[in-house]
Every structure is written in structure tokens, then in C-alpha cells.
């Protein structure tokens, strides 16, 4: 992983919320949990491409605003009984800066 892109600070993202940005890989949603963990996912629900950034964040999950699929922020997997997976992207915190890795991990390619 070489190219880490600075996308802002933790404070830019509301707690239990998300912000989005356009990238060459498509729109990416960056989530912040209640305990200040951050996750980056391609902003598409594996079900009908709903914008996950607009969903309600709970624990380490988000509920898609279109049809309420629940997606795990860490793995991108849909919660059973639904099946599908959203692509996740590497994201790390360096001090208060958020660094996004614009590489899709091969094992996490969407298969839904």
C-alpha cells in the first residue's frame, strides 16, 4: 500500500454519520462510528446500489436508506438473510488526519 490520500480529519465527519467523496474508483463513503472508528466503503449497497452514506449508522453497521439492508462497515458484508458485499477500502488515522488507500482489496470485490 503506497498511495495514501489525505481526505481530511476525523472532525469533518459527524459521529454516527458519513461523508462522501468522488474518487477514480467511484463515490466513496467514509463512516465514523459512535466510538470514533472510521471506515471507507464504495458508496453502493450490494442490493440496489443505494447510497450507504445516507443510512443510519449503528455500532459498526449501516442500514441502507433504500431498503434497509444492513451492511457491516468493516467487512462490507450484508447481514443475513441478505447476501452481498460492498467493496471496502483501506483507511487509517494518522494523528487527526484520515488517509484513504485507493486500492480495492482483491478478496473484497463485490459479488452480490
Amino acid at each position: 500500500m503506497n498511495d495514501w490520500i489525505d481526505i481530511g480529519t476525523l472532525a469533518d465527519i459527524p459521529r454516527l454519520g458519513a461523508r462522501t467523496l468522488d474518487t477514480p474508483l467511484g463515490e466513496v463513503a467514509v463512516f465514523r462510528t459512535g466510538d470514533d472508528d472510521v471506515f471507507a466503503l464504495i458508496n453502493k449497497c450490494p442490493h440496489k446500489n443505494g447510497p450507504l452514506s445516507e443510512g443510519i449508522v449503528m455500532g459498526r453497521k449501516v442500514a441502507c436508506p433504500l431498503h434497509n439492508w444492513v451492511i457491516d462497515l468493516n467487512s462490507g458484508e450484508a447481514q443475513a438473510p441478505d447476501e452481498g458485499c460492498t467493496t471496502t477500502l483501506p483507511l487509517k488515522q494518522d494523528g487527526d488526519r484520515l488517509l484513504l488507500g485507493l486500492v480495492v482489496s482483491t478478496k473484497k470485490v463485490a459479488h452480490g
Binding site: 490520500i5 481526505i7 469533518d12 459527524p14 467523496l21 468522488d22 477514480p24 484513504l100
Partner: peptide, 10 residues
Amino acid sequence: SHEFQPLAVV
């Protein structure tokens, strides 16, 4: 206002 603006421009 954060709702309607992108987090960053890449």
C-alpha cells in the same frame, strides 16, 4: 452544511 458537500476532492 456538511451533508451537501464532499469530504474531499480527489
